[in-house]
């Protein structure tokens, strides 16, 4: 197991390096720059600004000085939000996305696995159809439709919850974003769970268990759940990264100060250092969670053992 982890870490380094390099130069190829604006600045003013941020140096020099900073954990200054560094902005925004994301993740897994299992057990009954139609709706209704609807109904119409804001993550402000974010994942997980559960329930070892006279709840929990959850697990790794690195739609609609807004604004404003910093963050998280999923696989499935 230790060797496996060491191998994963060693693989991660070149992957990240390639990611950083490609992103760095791709950003520079995009038309415009962080300082282009409608009010054209005189060449002198533009030169002053470029000099301040080191843009007057050749691109390869900028690249190496960026890498140098990165090795010391410095993601550089934000070109858009001039009063902050990228480190500070990410440190402020990441906990927000993490909180919303983890809550949405827990809700999604709990309901997704439960609904999927129920649908599988009651296959081809009205309950199954209801859950699966709901899941289909959850998958196809985009969050930019769902979230404003939630606001219209629960904030403006019923006045039960606030329409937006963060307020340090106070409970009422978290409810609608978490619902808005988790519905899609509940839907996806329950669909995957149903499929794999049906497959497992038809397997020989379940039939054996039944013939031994074990009770259905015992069979489900003790025998069926573990193999049935494997496909869900491989889905959850990348899903978790997506979910905790913020949804720009949810954040924009609810006014949440998370990573998603920083990412999109960074790209729109050509805030090179911000986009790079977040790319590295998302890249590192993806690699980490994929590794964790692989390890969990080994724990859940005794057939898989890592050298």
């Amino acid at each position: 197991m230790l060797r496996f982890i060491a191998k994963r870490v060693l693989e991660a380094i070149p992957t990240l390096f390639i990611l950083i390099t490609v992103s760095f130069f791709l950003m520079r190829f995009a038309p415009g720059n962080p300082f282009s604006a409608e009010i054209a600045m005189t060449p002198e003013v533009m030169a002053n600004i470029e000099a301040k941020y080191g843009f007057d140096k050749p691109v390869h020099e900028q690249y190496f000085s960026y890498l140098g900073g990165l090795l010391q954990g410095d993601l550089g200054p934000s070109f858009k939000y001039k009063d902050f560094t990228v480190n500070e902005l990410v440190a402020q925004a990441f906990p927000v996305s993490l909180k919303i994301g983890l809550l949405a993740f827990i809700v999604a897994v709990t309901f997704g696995v439960t609904f999927g299992t129920i649908a599988a057990l009651r296959q081809n009954t009205w309950l199954d159809y209801t859950i699966m139609t709901g899941a289909m709706a959850g998958v196809v209704i985009p969050s930019f439709v769902l979230a404003p609807l939630l606001v219209l109904i629960f904030a403006i119409g019923l006045d039960w919850l606030p329409a937006g804001g963060w307020h340090n993550g106070a409970t009422p402000y978290v409810v609608l974003p978490v619902i808005g974010m988790s519905l899609y994942y509940i839907a996806s997980i329950s669909r995957i769970m149903r499929g794999s559960m049906i497959e497992v329930l038809n397997a020989n070892f379940i039939r054996t268990a039944k013939s031994k006279g074990l009770s259905t709840p015992y069979i489900i929990v003790r025998h069926a759940l573990r193999p049935a959850i494997l496909p869900v697990l491989s889905y959850l790794g990348p899903a978790l990264v997506g979910i905790i690195t913020g949804s720009v739609v949810i954040e924009t609609i609810f006014g949440l100060p998370g990573i998603g807004q920083l990412f999109v604004n960074g790209a729109l404003n050509r805030d090179y250092s911000m986009v790079l910093g977040l790319t590295i963050l998302v890249g590192a998280l993806t690699i980490t969670f994929n590794a964790i999923v692989d390890i969990l696989y080994a724990v859940v499935d005794p057939k898989i053992r890592y050298a």
Partner: peptide, 18 residues
């Protein structure tokens, strides 16, 4: 001052009394 870039999101919060 709330930096809400989307005018539609802003209007919803206005209509919600926030």
């Amino acid at each position: 001052s709330l930096p809400i870039a989307s005018p539609n999101a802003e209007l919803k919060r206005y209509e919600a009394g926030e």
